[in-house]
Structure formats: structure tokens, C-alpha cells
Design a protein around this nucleic acid. Sequence first.
DNA 1: ACGCTTGAGGTAAGCGCTTTCCTAGACCGT
DNA 2: ACGGTCTAGGAAAGCGCTTACCTCAAGCGT
Lengths: 333, 333
Amino acid sequence: MATLADVARHAGVSTATASRIINGSSKPVADALRTRVLAAVAELKYVPNAHAQMLARSHRSAVGVIVHDVSDPYFAEITRGLQRVATADGRLVIICNSFREPDRELEYIDLLHAHQVAAIVIAGSGYLDPATAARLDDRLRAFEATGGRIAVIGRHEHTGDAVLPDNEQGGFLAGEHLFTLGHTEIAVIAGPSYLTTTADRLKGLQNAARKYGIKLPKKRIYHADFTRDGGEEMAARVLADEPEVTAIAALNDSMAVGALAALRTSGDRRVAVIGFDDMPIARDVTPSLTSVRLPLTALGERAMALALGAAVESPRVEHVEAELVVRQSTWPR
Amino acid sequence: MATLADVARHAGVSTATASRIINGSSKPVADALRTRVLAAVAELKYVPNAHAQMLARSHRSAVGVIVHDVSDPYFAEITRGLQRVATADGRLVIICNSFREPDRELEYIDLLHAHQVAAIVIAGSGYLDPATAARLDDRLRAFEATGGRIAVIGRHEHTGDAVLPDNEQGGFLAGEHLFTLGHTEIAVIAGPSYLTTTADRLKGLQNAARKYGIKLPKKRIYHADFTRDGGEEMAARVLADEPEVTAIAALNDSMAVGALAALRTSGDRRVAVIGFDDMPIARDVTPSLTSVRLPLTALGERAMALALGAAVESPRVEHVEAELVVRQSTWPR
DNA sequence: ACGCTTGAGGTAAGCGCTTTCCTAGACCGT
DNA sequence: ACGGTCTAGGAAAGCGCTTACCTCAAGCGT
């Protein structure tokens, strides 16, 4: 491990001069020295120790991102947006997967805090349980108290700036679409019941049901885990349990795709399916999936912009509307 | 920012004692002190500065991962495997997207080096251009020279341990499948020509063609960019240019899905399509996609295991075979 | 020729932590 | 009671860098 001192010695200058040359400080330096130092850097294959740098100039630069799972396309899209604006700003982004476990999320908040990140962006559903939310918020506040910035995507219970997709309105859109097509017997494949996203989307659906005078009994709400396979399994159960159902509203596209698969294996061609999120795959399944679009990449970009922007007294909140995208998987009853 | 010194002062002990208590050092400490220190930690919401820790105990722990793009399902799968074993080992993993730009890759190698990661794992096709490969290898060696470990997935031109999916054999499998089904006029939708993955898979395809006495002229090889839309565009061009083609071999699933879409819009139901990678989506498109499976998650797991394992004199190389998965998108001519 | 400014470069004090080494009191056997 | 052995806890030396401050010499005007 060549150190700055090695380079300086090699070039016959002080570490101060070497540091100034390497970092392109504003202080003027003779060209002869500059050349010597740069040559020493190349020869020794010197790479500065980022930890020492961070410690010495105590200003934060990296940003941390906590998502449920980057390999889930939903978060992949959001992350893409986050990365774009972060790297455009020359920042290292550290991505952490919480896998929907509050404890892991807690751990990562502290870890990012320890790593002196400038900001933490948390994307993905929050936790309905107030105790859990409070615990998270507590750690977040501790981070904020040290001057860190916070931005959240899609959860409203925390301190800091927020970008909020309107899940409730999106749920309403999904319900309205199905009900105006004449479906009265619908089943819902929801996500885990402890997530706010599930609750919000469901609420929108119920609002729509109320408006259109349709009843949406508890037993018609099946909880899966937001994965494709979970959706397939639940859809199969719906098909078995409730033969009168004519449409399934899945609360995300992965589960909707699973539902389509269940329909395919059962040979059933009469049940309509609507998804949520409008992920790229929606175009490529057959029938192509009607869905409620959330501008995921944009969500990420805006959240990162908030996180990197100047701090403001009162947290900024941006709302983002959902939008219905009609394709071939829904039809009149 | 509460520091260790603050905590120590607050608890009326030295920083040495505080550090020992907080890190659970082996040195015994009186319970009274322990309680006081822990109380101070809680009260001051103390979070240790990871940079200072790294600097003081100069041992590396985090690991860095460089992939082309995590939000690409191919890398998402690999990354999942990498993360699983890294976090099981209690390590922070830093993920960097190179977006297939060698310069960015170079930059990230240095950045990870600077951050004193214990190991760097690079996944994804290498670059055919020898100068580019050499430049990368040079930086990698510099990292290795400082005691860092390196593991690569799917590129053979570098120092360090490697997990190598057999792309050539996979290409052969794809070709053999098509040729034994009787297809003689096939078109290939390849990836970017400067990537080794493209070259290897293509080579396998050509080996198969030679074995089965089929000719595969240059003009039947279309280069796209490994994305779905690129695949769709090229497939459309194939359909327009070469009406006699009865099968398309796409060199990854994303492009195969695009090809399926092109077929759908053109109303063509006679051209067979085979993909490569067997990503989850392959099951869910219609017709479901015949593909060549690479055990991506396992690839990631094994690479990370190599990276975290004990260093050995001579780099270890593990080969992983590809496997044909036949579904509905291919049929006899 | 003198004092002053100016500018290039060096000196050294941290940044926040870990850990080696040391101290001083407690405890032991005789 | 005394020397010797433990042991709990503290002092302080770094880890590799940045940067405020200082030095010294050259260049200036008068």
C-alpha cells in the first residue's frame, strides 16, 4: 500500500505539496514538482485512501440508498433514476437491500450513518406497525441531527423530504376501470398486509367500489408477497375458491403476471386481470397487461434531487399521480 | 456528531475503555462502567465513524461489485447471489454500474480500491479490444498488489479467481437445437461486437453450424445491444430483409423477448425464436421462450465465495455449463 | 539599501478511532 | 508484612490524509 508519504518521499517533496498536486488544489505549484509527483504516483501505483480522505476533510459525499430488493424490477427502475442523478453529481451511491425486514433497514440506516453519507434515500413501502415506524424514524432523526439529509419514496411517516406516488388514487383507478367495464365480482391479490403500499392501494380500490356500489368483501382479498410466484399461487386459489369472480386486481405487476400464468394453466380465458406499476414486462406477456403506471425512474430522480438539493426548513413533499394504461388483459364483463 | 471522546467524557472513562466496551473487545471491563458507557451511547445517539474505524484498524471488510447494470435482470440475478453470500459473511457490498463503459469500470476499480474493499467482483462480459482489457488488468493488478482479492464472472482475460459460464458451449447448444429441428436458414441477433460474451456465444453457434453443415453467413448476424428494444428493432429488420429465415437465435433473453414482440406486430407465426440466459421472464411470454440456461444466482454465489475465500497462489477457475431449456417458442421447421 | 509584500513550499495539528504499552491498585503465598 | 503476580483502566501513538499556518526567499518601491 503506497501512501501519500511514500509518494512525497519518492518525489522529494512534502506530503502537503503532494496532496495539493494530486487533488488539484487551488494553490499554485511549480511545474517541475508537479511532474515529479505525478510520475511518482504512476510509478508507485498510488491510490489515495478514501477513508483517510473522508476523515481528514470531514465533509460527506457518498449517498446511501435503501430499497427492499434491487433485483425486483420495481426497485430496479427506481434505483436507475436514483443512480442517474447521483452519479451525474459525482457521488458514490451505496445500495442496501432491506428485503422488507425492518431490522435490516434499521441496521442499514446506522451503517450508512456510520459511513458518513451525505444523504439516505429510502424507497419502498413503509411499515404499518406504528412501533416499527417509530423505531425507524428515531434512527433517521439521529442521522438527520448530524446534518444528514433524508428523502423517502412512497412512505409518508418519516422526517425528511418525500416523493409520494399516489397509491390510493392508483388503486382507485384500477377499481374504476374494472367497475366501469361491468365487473362486479372481483378478487384482489394484495401484498403483505403490514405494508403501507398494500393498505393504500387497497383503500383506493375500496373507495372505487363504494363509489360504484360494488361490494368488496374481506374474503375476496387475498394476501400474497408481491412476487410473481406468490401471485400465481393466490390466483390459483381464487380460481378454485371463487368461480363467480370475473376479474382479478393484482396490487403489482409481478403478481399480475403470476395470475396470468395461473389462468393459463387452468385454461381459463374469461377472467380479466389488472396489474399495478406498469413494469416493462407488462407489454410482453400475453395478453398484454392493463396496469396502473407509476413513473418509477422519475420517482427515483426526483427523490435523489431532493436529497442532494439544499436543505430547507420544512421538509418538501412531492406528490406523483398514477395513470391507467389499458392493454389487453381487461375487457367488459 | 457525537464522537467516541464525547461518549467517554459523558461516562467518565477514557476513550480506550469506551472503545473496548462498544466493540465488545475481549478485555474484561467492570459492569458498572459498561452500563455507564452504554447509557452514554444511547443518550448521545452515538454512531461510530466507519471511516475512522477503517483507518485505525487497517483491515478491509467491505467488498465491491462491478456489473454492467443491476437493473438488467441478468445482473440482478447474479447480484442477488453475490449479496447473499457477502451479507451472510457480514460484509457491506458496494455495487457499481459500469454501463458497459470501460472507462467507468476503470474509475470504479480505483474507487473501490480507494475505499479499501477486501475484494472486487466484476461480472459481465469483458472487452475484446486488447488495449482496453490490458488497461483494466493493469488497475486490477495494482489493487491485487495491495492485498485485495479479485473474482470475475464471465471474463477470462484478468488476473484473479474466475467463474466462467461456458458461453461457447451454450451457443453450441442453441445452434444444435435449431439445426436438429431442421432449421437451415437462421438469423442471429447478437450483442455488441466488442464484448467477449457476444464473441463466445457466436462462436458456439458457428461450431454447431459447421457440425451440422449449415452455413451461417456474416449478413445473417445482426448486432443489437442486448436490450429488449434493440432486439425488437433488429428482429423487425430480419423479418423485412430475410423472408426465408425460419428461426432467430437471440444471444440473450431480453432481445429474444423483443424478437417475439416484433413477430407479434408483424403477425408472423412461423419464425421460431431461441433465447439465452433463461431469465424468469422466459416462462411468462407467449410463446414461452426456449432458452439456454445459465445458473446466474449460483454464478454470483460461487464468485463471491471465491472472493471471500482464502487467497491461493494460483488463481482458481470454475467452469459452469449451460443447459438447454426447451419451451414453446421453437418447433421443427 | 531597506522594509514590505508576495508566493512557493514545508510543518504539524488534527479528523475519530483502535490498540499497544504502561500504571497502579488488588490480591496472593509465605 | 512483603515481594510478586494479576488485572482493570488509562495514556498515547499511530492509521493516511488535509489544511491552517508558518517560513524563507525573491521581487518591489522608495
